[in-house]
């Protein structure tokens, strides 16, 4: 790893100030640290967010479930409030990575990284979330902007994710057995005005599956559409055609979880 300076600020303001030059924020580190070790990423300043107070709180605010950016996956999975409010979100968190990763990894880190096969982005998009940051807010629909790309500006820190509490929510993924990322993951949220469906793992970035949303908003018993896109991921793990097939199967499984 190339040498860097470590900053451990104790306030959000100090964290913003510490971010200067070629800098990165450190949350759980399970993506960033391996990238730094392999030379894919080098930083002059690493800003550890662990000491910034209040970033790991989980609370209810009106029709929103607010999950702090530094809430660890294991904490979300075990949270009585999450389990009572959006149980499918707790189950999603319980299925990320492995036990060691869930003790370190955070929701803020996951969505800031926006890995095309990560689990949380699908939930954030399906649950019509608002991403709160040090600079303001982003709607989930505008936040994810492509492979590892988001609407975050330089030095902008995610502080919380405000999930809209749905009638029902479920996430189903077909997991790569080694990496434990999604080969295909589908999140389905049922709201008063209709159904939102988000898909991860099958293309360059998480996306809303509008054909599925239209069909299921008309009727939960609608015939499920076939996923047709020209940017399906094909790699050594699965062809694009197979991922599209899996997406339809995962849609059916998630749908079973929101029928209520």
């Amino acid at each position: 790893m190339t040498p860097f300076t470590l900053a451990r600020p104790e306030s959000l303001e100090a964290a913003r100030r510490a971010f200067a030059g070629d800098a990165a924020f450190l949350a759980g580190g399970h993506t960033l640290i391996p990238a730094m070790k392999s030379g894919l990423r080098s930083v002059e300043t690493l800003v550890d967010l662990a000491r910034v107070p209040g970033l790991d709180s989980i609370r209810r605010e009106g029709d929103r479930l607010v999950v702090g950016a530094m809430a660890r996956h294991a904490a979300v999975a075990a949270s009585p409030l999450v389990n009572a409010t959006i149980p499918g979100l707790a189950r999603l968190a319980a299925g990320i990575g492995d036990p060691q990763v869930r003790r370190r990894g955070t929701i803020g880190g996951s969505i800031a990284n926006n890995d095309p096969a990560a689990d949380y982005p699908a939930a954030v998009l399906a649950l019509d979330a608002i991403i709160e940051t040090s600079e303001g807010t982003h709607a989930a629909d505008d936040f994810f902007q492509g492979m590892f790309a988001t609407a975050l500006g330089d030095g902008e820190i995610i502080t919380a994710v405000h999930f809209r509490v749905p009638h029902a929510f479920a996430y189903a993924k077909f997991r790569h057995p080694a990496s434990r990322y999604a080969l295909a993951g589908v999140a389905v949220a049922r709201f008063p005005e209709g159904v939102r469906v988000a898909v991860t793992g099958v293309a360059y970035s998480v996306f809303r599956w509008t054909e599925a949303e239209e069909a299921l908003s008309a009727s939960l018993d609608a015939e499920l559409p076939t996923l047709a896109r020209d940017d399906l991921t094909s790699d050594i793990h699965a062809s694009g055609e197979y991922r599209a097939h899996l997406a339809r199967v995962m849609l059916a499984r998630a749908l079973a979880g929101v029928r209520g």
Binding site: L6, L26, G29, H30, I33, P34, K37, S38, L46, D48, D98, P99, Q100, V101, R103, R104, A178, S179
Partner: peptide, 22 residues
Amino acid sequence: TGHCGACTVMIDGRIAKSCIAQ
């Protein structure tokens, strides 16, 4: 890179991969 688990220790009573923990 935090995948294999051979570096696992307990930090403050919880298991962690010590190759990632700074």
